[in-house]
């Protein structure tokens, strides 16, 4: 295993030291592994909290700041954070207007956030609403599984709903917008290589040189299908098709994210975006906004994912609203 780390057990603690030193505008609680905004939540503003296993950076810590999250809880690599972390973040971020928990649909994340919400409401009276993202079309037969995974749409949701919270909408409105965004987004991912979990010390799966995994999530789990490596244009087709098959994106502006898994360089991500955009054009889908880069990653995995969000003028307005975080910044 070749990584820029001190020891597999200290990856998260050491990385949080770097985050704190690199971002004087943020606060880091090293005991509870929470990244907060430097300024307390404005009175009346609903607080947005997310969290999850580490290894997906910039998600979620890189999205803490004006126009997005108020706090992010970091779990161990690929392991959801614990309820006490989330409860602490909930307490600190709440300004009285309530807190939205943004949870990606994984058994562990859901159970831990559930316990946190119970604890926060019971012990401190903070009003908590939760939204669970589940946009991954790679998970078929979702009634016979833990349901679809929450992946790329989480990034778009944190941006859009963050803007709405900044405008002063109440908890119910913020939560309902979050559910709408989740319902209108779909994603699909693929991997050229496995990632290596530091504590495991070797790649999670072996992939021959001429094969790729289609339908991977963001935890180095093997995908749904192992298929022959193909040119970018074919890969784009294999990613976009199940997305378009799953939801009707016609007749509305869309926001499209071409996301890197962490080990794929930007030149390839742009190349892939070109292929994806051409397919969407041919399918009559109107791309109003786009985002190309590493936003929700899977450690050092090489690969990418596509997220398409059915938007409208209001969602586009919220998308364009100012945001000032380490991982996403415009308009400020």
């Amino acid at each position: 295993m070749k990584k820029l780390i001190n020891s597999p057990d200290h990856v998260l603690a050491d990385a949080l030291v770097g985050v704190e030193l690199a971002h004087p505008e943020l606060k880091v609680d090293h005991t509870n592994r929470i990244i907060y905004r430097g300024e307390p939540t404005k009175p009346g503003k609903v607080a947005l909290i997310s969290g999850g296993g580490s290894g997906h950076e910039p998600l979620h810590g890189g999205f803490v700041g004006f126009g997005m999250l108020d706090a992010a809880c970091a779990g161990e690599v690929f392991t959801s954070p614990t309820p006490d972390q989330m409860q602490e973040a909930t307490k600190v971020a709440d300004s009285g207007a309530g807190v939205l928990h943004i949870v990606k649909n994984y058994t562990g994340d859901v159970m831990n956030f559930e316990m946190a919400a119970e604890m926060a409401e019971a012990e401190t009276g903070v009003r908590v609403e939760s939204v669970v993202t589940n946009d991954d079309v790679a998970v078929e037969d979702s009634t016979w599984t833990a349901g679809r995974r929450g992946v790329g749409v989480t990034v778009l949701l944190e941006k859009i709903v963050g803007a709405a919270a900044e405008e002063g909408r109440d908890l119910a409105a913020v939560a309902s917008l979050a559910r709408t965004v989740n319902a209108q987004g779909r994603s699909m991912g693929m991997a050229l290589t496995s990632c290596t979990v530091p504590s495991a010390g070797k790649p999670t799966f072996e992939l021959p040189d001429d094969m790729m995994e289609m339908g991977v999530g963001i935890h180095g789990e093997p995908g749904r299908h192992r298929v022959p490596l193909a040119p970018a244009a074919d890969i784009a087709q294999q990613l976009v098709e199940p997305i378009l098959h799953d939801l009707d994106f016609s007749g509305a502006p869309t926001i499209v994210m071409l996301n890197g898994m962490g080990g794929t360089p930007l030149i390839e991500l742009y190349l892939m975006y070109g292929e994806v955009a051409k397919i969407l054009q041919k399918s009559g889908i109107q791309v109003a906004r786009s985002l190309v880069g590493n936003y929700i990653t899977s450690l050092d995995m090489a690969g990418c994912s596509v997220t398409v969000l059915r938007a409208d003028d209001e969602l586009l307005r919220l998308w364009d609203a100012p945001v000032n975080t380490a991982g996403l910044r415009w308009g400020v």
Binding site: G53, E76, V77, V197, S199, A200, T204, F205, H219, E221
Partner: peptide
């Protein structure tokens, strides 16, 4: 345990239980 979790999960069950 991590080996087993690598095959069908996310390669952390050993680390989780040991921790």
């Amino acid at each position: 345990l991590t080996e087993l979790d690598s095959a069908i999960g996310d390669a952390d069950h050993g680390a989780n239980m040991a921790r």
